[in-house]
Amino acid sequence: MSNVDVIRAHYAASDRGDLPGMLAPLGPQTKWTEAAGFPYAGTYTGPGEVREHVFEAIGRDWDGYRFTLADLLDAGDTVVGVGTYTGTHRRTGRSFTARVAHLWRFGGQSVVSFEQIVDSAPVVAAATQENS
């Protein structure tokens, strides 16, 4: 499987709601960085930390949280996924749409790092403002 195929499979698993499939490309040393300002900001190491601090937290806080892939760019050892996040916050009932880019870096056949670049303002606004 090429690097871009590995990431394409990750996004296909996301579309199916298949968390084990989403975590499959991550190794124990993979560094996963959620952008500063994003509700789950930080760097997590390995699939266990990513599951707990990112995906389980999103599942707890949001209904219909989704990443919709628009472009998948193959740059060899770097793969870029560009798309849109959407969701509705469970507590506030507010929805959002935010543009996002994911930078996947490979070392050999393994994902070494993931970095999220996102317009976090609409996400934070949906999570913090009560319905009128």
Rank of each mutant, 00 (worst) to 15 (best):
G37N: 05
R99Y: 08
A36R: 07
V79S: 09
A41Q: 07
P28D: 05
G46I: 15
G93Y: 06
M1D: 06
G48P: 00
A70Y: 10
S113V: 01
D5W: 00
T68F: 10
Y44Q: 01
Q116P: 01
V4N: 03
D74Q: 08
S132G: 08
A41G: 06
N131E: 06
A75E: 05
D77Y: 01
S120W: 02
E130H: 10
A126M: 05
A125H: 04
R8S: 00
G17S: 12
A35T: 10
A35Q: 10
G81C: 09
R99L: 11
G83S: 13
G27W: 02
D18A: 07
H89V: 05
D61M: 12
S95N: 10
G46K: 15
G42S: 05
V54K: 01
D61L: 12
H53L: 10
A24H: 10
T88Y: 02
D119I: 14
Y40I: 00
A9R: 02
T68K: 14
L26S: 04
F55C: 12
T30C: 04
D74W: 07
P25W: 03
S14W: 03
D77N: 04
S2L: 06
H10S: 06
G17E: 11
G42R: 00
S120R: 02
A75K: 05
A57K: 10
A101I: 14
V118Q: 10
T33H: 02
D74H: 09
K31G: 07
G37I: 04
A125P: 02
R90C: 13
M22C: 05
H53A: 11
G93P: 11
Y44V: 01
R66F: 06
G42W: 02
G17Q: 14
A70Q: 13
E115A: 01
G76N: 01
E49S: 09
F67G: 15
V111Q: 08
R99E: 10
E34H: 05
G76P: 05
D18R: 06
A98C: 11
S120I: 03
T45K: 04
S110N: 08
S132A: 08
H10Y: 08
T92M: 13
V82D: 02
F55W: 14
Y40D: 02
Q116A: 03
Q109S: 03
R60Q: 08
Y65R: 15
V124C: 08
P122Y: 12
S14I: 04
H53Y: 10
P25S: 02
G87S: 08
A126S: 07
M22L: 06
W104N: 04
A101V: 15
A101L: 12
K31T: 07
I117F: 14
R91V: 15
W104M: 04
